[in-house]
C-alpha cells in the first residue's frame, strides 16, 4: 500500500473528518489515562500502639508509592501512645513529606504523641475546641530491684530493665526529642518558649492557634483543600488510604487497663514510656 494513502490530506473530505474524529477520540482516551489526583486521608482515632502504628505506616507507604495520591491529610483524634510507635510514624511521615505535602487536622484531641505526629506535618488544622498539646512523656517506674527467687536472671537489672532513677532520666531524654520535634515542625510560627512547651499543657484549638501550635481552624475538608493547594492539584478526589492500601477494617486492640468493673481506665495496659495524655478525672493509677 502506498504510504501516501494514510495522509489525511490524501483522504477525501468525509474521510478527513472521520480521521480527525478518530484522533480526537484517541486524544480523549489518552487524556482519560491521566488519573484524577487524590488527597489521601489517614485516620488515627485510637491510641498509637504497635498495631495502629503499623497500619498508619502502611497507609503512609501507600501514599508515598501511589502516584495518584498527591497529598495526604492526617485526621487525628488520639491521646497519643507509646514512644517508639509514635516516633516510627513520625519518621515515616517525614519521609513522605519529602515527596508529598501532609496536612493534619485535629478532631477532639491531638494530645502528646498525636500532637508529635501533627508537628510532623506541613500544616495543622484544629477545631476551636480541639484539645491540643500535652507535650511530654509519662511512664510507670519499674519496680525496685530485688531478688526474685523463682525467676533466674543474669544481671541485677535483667528483670527490671534498670534502676528507677535511670528510667526517670530516660523520660527526660525522650522529652528533649519531643520538644525538638515541636520546634522543628512549628519553627517561627510557635509563640511559646521551650519551657512553656515543656509544661505539658493542653490548649483549646483557638488558643493553640494564637500560640502557634496549629496553623488554622478547620476540619478535614479544609485540610484536604489546603493539602491540594500545596500539591498544586485541583478537582481532586479524597480517598481513604486504608482502602487504597487494602487494609482491613480497624480492629480493637486493648491498650488501656480495664478496671475490675469492666470500665476502661486512661492508663496503659503495659508498662513503658508513653507520649500519652492521661485525663486527671480517672483518679489514681490502678
Amino acid at each position: 500500500m502506498n504510504m501516501r494513502a494514510w495522509k489525511l490530506s490524501a483522504l477525501g473530505p468525509a474521510w478527513r473528518w472521520v480521521g480527525l474524529a478518530l484522533l480526537l477520540a484517541a486524544g480523549i482516551l489518552v487524556a482519560l489515562l491521566i488519573p484524577r489526583p487524590v488527597v489521601g486521608t489517614i485516620y488515627l482515632n485510637t491510641p498509637i500502639e504497635a498495631v495502629s502504628a503499623r497500619e498508619v505506616i502502611a497507609q503512609i507507604d501507600e501514599a508515598r508509592n501511589n502516584p495518584r495520591v498527591r497529598a495526604v491529610v492526617l485526621v487525628l483524634d488520639s491521646p497519643g501512645g507509646t514512644v517508639a510507635d509514635t516516633e516510627a510514624v513520625y519518621l515515616e511521615l517525614a519521609r513522605l513529606r519529602g515527596a508529598k505535602p501532609v496536612v493534619s487536622t485535629i478532631g477532639t484531641m491531638a494530645a502528646s504523641g498525636a500532637y508529635y505526629l501533627a508537628v510532623g506535618s506541613d500544616f495543622i488544622f484544629a477545631m476551636p475546641t480541639s484539645q491540643v498539646g500535652n507535650v511530654g512523656v509519662i511512664g510507670s517506674l519499674p519496680p525496685r530491684p530485688s531478688v526474685v527467687e523463682d525467676v533466674a536472671s543474669t544481671g541485677p537489672y535483667k528483670l527490671f530493665g534498670g534502676p528507677r532513677d535511670s528510667f526517670l532520666r530516660q523520660l527526660e531524654a525522650v522529652k528533649v526529642g519531643f520538644i525538638q520535634a515541636v520546634s522543628l515542625g512549628r519553627g517561627e510560627r510557635l509563640m511559646l518558649t521551650t519551657e512553656e512547651i515543656a509544661r505539658g499543657e493542653i490548649y483549646l484549638g483557638s488558643d493553640a492557634l494564637r500560640l502557634g501550635l496549629v496553623d488554622a481552624l478547620g476540619g478535614p475538608s479544609q485540610a484536604a483543600a489546603h493539602a491540594a493547594r500545596m500539591a498544586h492539584i485541583a478537582h481532586y478526589a479524597v480517598a481513604d488510604l486504608r482502602e487504597l492500601a487494602g487494609l482491613p477494617a480497624a480492629t480493637f486492640v486493648p491498650f488501656f487497663y480495664m478496671a475490675e468493673d469492666g470500665r476502661a481506665t486512661a492508663y496503659p495496659l503495659e508498662a513503658g514510656l508513653f507520649l500519652l495524655y492521661v485525663p486527671p478525672a480517672e483518679g489514681r493509677q490502678p
Binding site: L20, L24, G27
Partner: peptide, 8 residues
C-alpha cells in the same frame, strides 16, 4: 486533537 484533551 490527540494532545489537547490530555493537556486539558
Amino acid at each position: 486533537l490527540l494532545v489537547v484533551p490530555a493537556l486539558v
